[in-house]
Nucleic acid binder design. Structure first.
Lengths: 223, 223
DNA sequence: GAGTGCTCTGAGGTTCCTCTGAGATTCGCG
DNA sequence: CGCGAATCTCAGAGGAACCTCAGAGCACTC
């Protein structure tokens, strides 16, 4: 199972050679790749893990590619899907798109084109879904800044962004310092860092963005 | 490169026979014709020269026709584009137009119809100066310079122009160095060039035209 | 074939981010 | 109230990321 959802990619491809090639290719580009060899296992992955993009071959054993797309979509999974196909006829293409795929690539394809299309899918998808509600304002996760209200946008550093992201995604939950350290600060030994970054966020966004729960930890200010 | 901008026409067509035919045809009608044989070279022409109209075939090597349209538009070039295609389905047509093409002709076509459609495009679209908003000033893409405000116009080099185009066309988006390298600097290995050109633009236009997002990349200054 | 302008490299200096640690402040409880 | 524990505040060290710029290589011009 892939851990990093932002760059996790599901590849459903029965041809071992092609699967290995694409796996290497995308791994080299910084993606975390899960490979499924047939439609059944592909469906299982698609429904149990979260991916940024799925690449599905049309000619699959167990479940045909287009059926797989249809099944995944019928379960409410909105992840962008790119279909690989050997046949490039219009009917073929329309069928894939009608089933709910965002894009299709005809084999044999240029490696660069495939990469470009995957990037395009990621871009389009993340562009619209990377905002977290902050009451009056919102956090633009990809641009790493807080926008909204009358004031000018407030730029955040990488750590500040990660920390605020976590709080904003779980507005009611109380996080202990230990949890925050594990989730946001990779180094296990940075006891004071959590406090410091809470302080930074408060200084930039106002004392109330994050509330202290004495003896327990922190939680989101609003709600 | 075509000199007379008012009647310059870019033809991107890989079929040598068809290219030669259309070249003769439009030259005979008084147009100055540049012919590109593949998408890569077509993109280069489209971004570096100024045309009254572009005719792009869908089935191209290197870059697919619709992708070429998308790329040209994403750089802020507003020149009317007519797409040639062998497939005439609705899906197909919608995609071409969504990418930013103005019109659409299905092969095989009548010569007279093509001429008529090009004339119609020219009539509709007499103002072909591509301008991108830059806050106080604007970037004249085709003239490769920044105009407006109290100061004198500032001339840009080719690379500077391409880079600023990309930023100005997507004012809110953060671009990583990798993306910029792929989109603006065709050569894959030019790690420091991105930084250098950001520096050049800042030196010419002020430190704030492009903002740094530490650890991520760059984005447009305004907005 | 010298001159000019553009592109990109690489090295050194600078800025920014991250985290530490120590003193000041607040909190909870007897 | 008074005390210990928890929390807040912030200066600063270390290192990574970034900026600046001189200059080499190249293409194009006259």
């Amino acid at each position: 199972m892939a851990g990093d959802q932002d760059h996790a990619l599901l590849l459903v491809e029965d041809d071992a050679k092609l699967a290995a090639l694409l796996d290497r290719l995308f791994t080299g580009e910084g993606y975390t790749v899960d490979v499924a060899r047939d439609g059944q296992s592909g469906l299982h992955h698609a429904l149990t893990s979260r991916y940024a993009v799925m690449i599905i071959d049309r000619g699959l054993p167990a479940i045909e590619g287009v059926d797989l797309v249809r099944k995944v979509r019928s379960r409410g999974v909105a992840t962008p899907i790119l279909v690989l196909t050997a046949r490039g006829t219009t009917e073929d293409r329309v069928e894939g798109l009608d089933a709910g795929a965002e894009d299709y690539v005809v084999k044999p394809f240029e490696i660069d084109e495939l990469l470009a299309r995957v990037r395009a899918l990621l871009r389009r998808h993340t562009d619209t879904s990377a905002r977290l509600d902050l009451g009056e304002r919102y956090l633009d996760v990809t641009a790493r800044r807080v926008v909204g209200g009358a004031a000018a946008p407030i730029e955040l550093s990488g750590r500040e962004n990660e920390l605020l992201q976590l709080f904003a995604a779980h507005p009611t939950q109380v996080f202990t310092r230990d949890e925050l350290r594990r989730l946001v600060f990779q180094d296990a030994d940075s006891p004071g860092a959590v406090d410091t970054y809470v302080y930074y966020l408060r200084r930039k966004l106002g004392r109330d963005v994050i509330r202290t729960v004495h003896g327990l930890g922190y939680r989101m200010g609003s709600a």
